[in-house]
Amino acid sequence: MGIEILTDPLRYDFMVRALITALLSGVMLSILGSFTINKNMGFMADAIAHSTLPIIAVGVFFGFSISELGIPAAIVIALFLGFIIKNSNIGEDTSIGIIFSSFFALGFVLISVLEVSINLEDLLFGQILAVSSFDVIVIFILFVTVLAILFVFFKQILFYSFDPIGAQVRDLNVTFLNYLFLIILSLTIVGSLQTVGIVLVLSLLLIPAASAKLVTKTFLSSIKVGAIFGAVSSVSGLYLSYYFNLPSGPTMSLVASSIFILSFTVNKFMQKPKLINE
């Protein structure tokens, strides 16, 4: 017993691929999650995840894999959701709710009508052990792209998220920033569907970021700690699922939830609720 616990699963290529995917997804989702929770966009993120279903159904019908569909699907969904929300007068939550449920329903109908051979359970809850080398490359490219965009536009996106009117007065292109954030959020979510699936992707997006917010003082430190929580949740979830023969996606979610309960308890009951400074 010892280091073998960590190295033993790596004898299998599929576990190495799964580990890399879990790590990249966990970190990427948590970093975007820090913005998402502070922008109150959790429902939007859920809608993005569920809206992928019809695109995946049609794509798989024409012979594409989920990884091949990821980038175009994410961009289409982000632009569509952004446009509908901006141009409807029925409220953001209502618009998201309508799109969310309609797309999800359409996805199921298309899967049935087109007789697409998709394992729905894998799609909803993830199947990280089935990722191919190509999937890993796609996720790695998405990881680098998303973080590079966030790095370059960090200050502008933060300004726009904190004070949209002030950013507009300062002559920032707020429409561009809005769509840019939606696109990188969509890329992150769609890129992580194989890891935790449509239903559970929200757990790795929101829970590590929310946990980090509870034990940190500043936004930057919450991003850093959130990324660590995300990595720990996904990697340890993967190991636990390997050793205890558990479904990997739900196990990762439960580890993230456990970290949240711990953070919540620390925040609530310790004398100094904010533990980690920059």
Binding site: N38, K39, L158, F162, D163, I165, G166, V169, T216
Partner: peptide, 15 residues
Amino acid sequence: YVPQNSQINWNFPLS
């Protein structure tokens, strides 16, 4: 421009 207090997203724990 100094915006109205209500226009700011105070969720962000900024310095």
